[in-house]
Amino acid sequence: MKTLVVDDSRLARAEVIELLKAHQEIDVVAEAADVHSAVESIDKHKIDLVMLDIHLPDGNGFDVLEKSENTPKVIFTTAYEQHAIQAFQVNALDYLLKPVTAERLSAALSKLTGSAVASTSSSIDPDAQIFIRDGDSCHFVKLREIYLVNVDGKFSRVFFRDQKAFLARSLSYVESKLAGLRFFRANRQQIINLEFVANVEPSISDGLNVTLINGVTVEVSRRQAKDLKDRLEF
């Protein structure tokens, strides 16, 4: 797993790198001391895992996740940040308090490795996730948990599990990130997850009405209707 260690203290990075040496599957390919170089590194090295400090000179760990194109797996390391951690909807996320102990690090890594193997070769990881910061709350969302993406002004609103969050990216951007997965652009305003489709009926306007398993209905435009039939047929 290609790993990046981010901390503005050199000694702190050295400590984490030293601890990671005990783990064969971890390959530390880069270090970064600030948001700027961390973002660059994640995108350049196609980083799988980031050991990420929250306090950085030019921002914080959340900025790193928000600014990078790919959202890697993350283990936060922090000196004392109970409240920042609480701001999270704690899922698909682990954090370690500094000084980090070997045991806690092993536990955090073992949570990750299950899905990590699959992610190495194929272009799209079924567990791929995005990081969304909406106001005070942060979400790590697995792409397969998303059932609907709506246009919201110039940006998007993502619906997942029983929640929704604002994402400062255009719908086209989201669509391009989801390409290759079972997502479908139903109309100009919406993208749906085909895994969630429960029922399809013709609509009055020659398109299709799609009902998702959670009862949400989405209208598919006439133009897109044929594509949808193709996608749904095996």
């Binding site: 203290s9 000694l11 702190a12 050295a14 400590e15 030293e18 000196a79 004392y80 308090l97 500094k98 000084p99 980090v100």
Partner: peptide, 11 residues
């Protein structure tokens, strides 16, 4: 305090 401890540990 915790940063100092962490740095000392590494040092």
């Amino acid at each position: 305090l915790f940063n100092a401890l962490n740095n000392l540990r590494s040092l």
